[in-house]
Simulated scan of single mutants.
Amino acid sequence: MSEIFTEEVMQEFFLRIEELTIEQEPSFGKMNAHQMICHCTDFFRMAMGAKKALEYGNVDPNEIKAAARQGKTVQTPKGFGQVEGNGTKPTDFEEDKETLKKFILEFMQLPINHEFAPHPYFGNLTKEKWERLAIYHLNHHLEQFNV
């Protein structure tokens, strides 16, 4: 998968999101498909500053990167855990899927010099780094539900 959010990458994610059903079981993790959709939308809310974590800088970014490279579960920033009830609450599955797609589109259209909110683990990131993280995150969670 590309590391840059192109139109083609966005459309591929949209198709995969459309394949999701509320009944799909995860191949790993504790979130259900509906919670995962809201969790992924919260990622974009965080990047754009609309949702803030409850703490910043308390996790070693190198530990996060190492866990991700090894395919291990990465700690969710405090305030974003769906299972713990801290993420955006799921409402209507199809509407929440559309909301995720809306946020992906908005994120992709931001200018290269957009001032993003700091990431709770990695601090200030460029658009390129946010894009790489977004692609990794979306792909990880869509694979979680085999789409």
Rank of each mutant, 00 (worst) to 15 (best):
G57L: 10
L54E: 00
K97N: 04
K89E: 06
F93M: 06
D42M: 14
E143T: 13
E98V: 07
E128C: 11
L20T: 04
M108D: 02
L133F: 11
R45F: 14
G49Q: 03
E12F: 05
A68V: 07
M46E: 00
E25W: 12
Q35S: 12
K78Q: 04
D96G: 07
F44D: 07
P111N: 05
Q11K: 10
H114C: 11
E98I: 12
N58S: 09
E63C: 03
E98K: 11
R69M: 13
H141I: 12
T88I: 09
G71A: 15
T21W: 04
M46R: 01
N113T: 06
A50I: 09
D92E: 00
I135H: 11
V83T: 15
E94L: 07
D42I: 13
P26K: 13
Q82T: 14
G123D: 02
I64T: 01
I4K: 04
R16P: 02
E12Y: 07
K51W: 04
E3M: 14
G85V: 08
K78F: 05
Q75S: 15
I135Q: 06
K72W: 09
I17E: 00
A117L: 02
Q70S: 15
W130G: 10
T99C: 09
F116H: 00
Q109W: 04
M36A: 14
G81Q: 07
I104Q: 00
F107C: 10
G79K: 02
P61S: 04
T21D: 10
I22F: 10
Q75L: 15
G57A: 11
I22H: 07
D42K: 07
W130V: 11
N146T: 08
T88S: 13
E143P: 00
K65E: 00
K78T: 06
A33D: 04
F103I: 02
N58A: 13
A117I: 01
N146K: 05
T91V: 09
F145D: 05
R45H: 08
K89D: 04
T88W: 01
K97Y: 01
T6A: 11
